[in-house]
Design a protein around this nucleic acid. Structure first.
Lengths: 226, 226
DNA sequence: TTTACGCGTTAAAAAAGGTTAAGCCGAAAC
DNA sequence: GTTTCGGCTTAACCTTTTTTAACGCGTAAA
């Protein structure tokens, strides 16, 4: 299982990372929210552990950004103080659990396992495979199975399509998507994204029931008629 | 089934959310009425559960706002105290049921299922399809089936028409609609809405029995003669 | 009945998006 | 080391969508 760990205290970070690795998990340690977000968009994770207070981008902001793109991934917060408001805000934005420092390693492990068990039901272990209308799509291998043969997607095409598919029937927020894939939501990246939407639309034309509709000023939405 | 849950006590909120999810429902948890209202306007829900007392916007106000836009969606209230007046007021503004804390999960589930069963008759699972006079309308795909062919609606046209149709024969409150679609009921957005009403009237001219009438100072009302 | 005010409608301005092609740049091939 | 190629960005041009402006009319309050 891949865990994304964001912790600015490097001693604690290393400690946690090593402990979890010793328990058989794969751990990516980052030292602030911004780096964690970048990492999140590069690799597929199954679990997140975020320190609340971090430089560059705090755990709350990070969680909000991630929740725009992934509604399901479990997120566990670490905090120095037992501040109730923090706790409440944490849950409000989609945290799954909360751990107050100092905590024992065993406690951490117990929480991780508990949450994993709970969310295991709808977990996509390993390779994902989607059916987009009549088209099959494998984001892991960046392949789109079209009538005329398999089409290999480029990195950006794949990232964008993957997000669209994961958020089928829901609006994929423009800004959040830009920050997720391009790292910055400036004007030019926005235009670049529009170009990619055009590319993807062309690829999906094979099935006339597939539509990537624009929600003016908000973002895009993948809809499939049937 | 999509449930909108508004509860400021995040511990309780999480508890409920997880319980309902485990029962197969899809749950969106928000921590106050304002956020709940925003969420309500972004996604299609089948059921609401609101705490009465919340910061920013309480359950009553929230219900009033929502009832301006949707007369049918079932709303269940949660309250800490067994205040009779609360209960009465709750029903007065359109609550479907009422649950006093503390309550058991089973009780909650029973109520939800009871209410759902009761209102199931006119439940639109998935894709909606309306008959506006002789014109067919599919809000999900933003399509209006006119004689001369299908007309694709823009985001705003669709949002507004959808609200009108859902509130057929009833006044669609001006301010509430503006807040729902534009996010703000200032003067300019108001004029913008008037422009859209004009656009929609033009589109619906095909059937002379359809009329979007203005209720001075209150809002608009879609009526169909026959 | 006069005076605001709210709405109806059309047109123009502004913003956002759709699409294609050209340019750029780094990695692989030669 | 140079060339070639693939992928991404930027530019250009056009269309669509939304907002703002302008002007006229009906309604309700003073």
């Amino acid at each position: 299982m891949n865990i994304l760990l964001a912790e600015d205290d490097l001693n604690l970070g290393e400690l946690l990372s090593n402990f979890l690795k010793s328990k058989g998990y794969t751990v990516d340690l980052t030292r602030n929210g911004k780096l964690a977000f970048e990492r999140f968009n590069q690799k597929k994770f199954d679990f997140c552990i975020f320190d609340v207070m971090m430089p560059e981008m705090d755990g709350f902001t990070l969680t909000k950004e991630i929740r725009e793109l992934d509604k399901k991934i479990p997120i566990l917060f670490l905090t120095a103080k037992a501040m109730k408001e923090d706790k409440l805000e944490g849950f409000a934005i989609g945290a799954d659990d909360y751990l107050t420092k100092p905590f024992s390693m065993e406690e951490l492990l117990a929480r991780i396992e508990a949450i994993s068990r709970r969310t295991e039901a709808d977990k996509n272990e390993g390779d994902e495979k989607y059916h987009v209308g009549i088209i099959e799509y494998e984001p892991t291998y960046r392949i789109l199975h079209l009538k005329e043969g398999d089409k290999k997607l480029t990195t950006k095409e794949n990232q964008l399509l993957h997000l669209l598919v994961k958020n089928k029937n829901e609006i994929l927020d423009r800004q959040a998507t830009l920050r997720a894939i391009w790292g910055d939501d400036n004007y030019f990246n926005g235009r670049s994204m529009d170009v990619y939407i055009a590319k993807i639309r062309k690829l999906l034309r094979e099935d006339p029931n597939i539509e990537i509709m624009n929600v003016h000023g908000k973002g895009f939405k993948l809809v499939i008629k049937d």
